[in-house]
Design a protein around this nucleic acid. Structure first.
Lengths: 168, 168
DNA sequence: GCTGAAGACTTCAACTCTAAACTTCGAAGC
DNA sequence: GCTTCGAAGTTTAGAGTTGAAGTCTTCAGC
């Protein structure tokens, strides 16, 4: 009963023993992807913590910045993009409101709706995170030359297109 | 205030406007990675649901199979590998015990420890999921030829090594 | 052998998310 | 105009996770 996690190759070797019809090459890609994403999440999480931000807050800040000035979105839209229920959005915004990261007001053109906006403090937090994150990302990719980076990007986008059409 | 998510390129263009010192090529790789992983998680989640399994249960089954026969692990080890607290592990095992997927007994060689083992039903569930999942993964990679698959795997593993040393 | 300290799991309270019922507003149909 | 239906958010109850405190076991020092 070992404590350290088996290496990717060990893992795939065991999978093949347990289930013969497995393509090792496919498995190598898929499992590397999920391991990589999990560890990157851990790394990002640590960085966020040093800035006093939770992962949940960071996700919302990103969406608000991503629409560009004047940095406004409806809660339902944010919820959809993050894969959350509207109820979860309500609570997140409550907390971020208390932290001074966002504003919330009724949409006067359609009073059913609510408008969530970014505060200056929220925008400043986003910038701080981006400065840290881009340094980390550059570190992450330092072993890859420009050609390899482009290649990797292309391959990932082809998978992304495929999975996107699958989900529709 | 748009409802659809911006494309990857649109997103990066906006990020660059908001924060000039950003390398678009790096950003392209990193954001494609996270989008891809999120959507794959949604796809896997749907598949699991059709088999009456939760993502949490699937994670634990994977770890147990991954150590090979006799499919036993200590709760603390599983918790570490999944990035959970021991408390969460206790509750997960409670539920999986009730579902008949695992067993739990004291380790007689060291009575502080507990041994979690896989039941035949748990092993069967793992196989069912793998059959579905490998079909999906083959679909996901269908646009890539063998050379591209190998390339992608290699590049991902180089990133994986990098982030792993970073976390130590 | 006894005692104190450390390790592994469990218990408990607080927090976050989901699902479902509820409230409010706007738009159609009559 | 009044009613009904649908859309957007909020509220509430229940499930899962975390962090801290608690319990039980082992081991080292005496």
């Amino acid at each position: 009963m070992p404590d350290p996690q088996p290496s990717l190759d060990e893992q795939i070797a065991i999978y093949q023993r347990e289930y013969r019809d497995l393509d090792p090459q496919v498995e190598r890609v898929v499992n590397a992807l999920s391991r990589l994403d999990r560890r990157m999440s851990v790394a990002y999480g640590r960085q966020l913590a040093t800035l006093g931000l939770s992962g949940a807050e960071w996700e919302v800040l990103k969406e608000l910045v991503m629409v560009g000035s004047p940095y406004q979105l409806w809660p339902g839209t944010i919820a959809k993009r993050l894969g959350l229920t509207p109820a979860a959005m309500t609570h997140r915004i409550d907390r971020m409101l208390a932290a001074g990261l966002v504003t919330r007001e009724r949409d006067e053109e359609n009073r059913v709706r609510v408008i969530v906006g970014l505060t200056d403090e929220g925008r400043e937090k986003w910038l701080q995170v981006m400065r840290q994150a881009s340094a980390f990302e550059e570190y992450l990719l330092q072993d890859l030359n420009n050609e390899e980076r482009a290649q990797l990007g292309d391959l990932l986008i082809r998978l992304l297109d495929r999975v996107s059409t699958h989900l529709d």
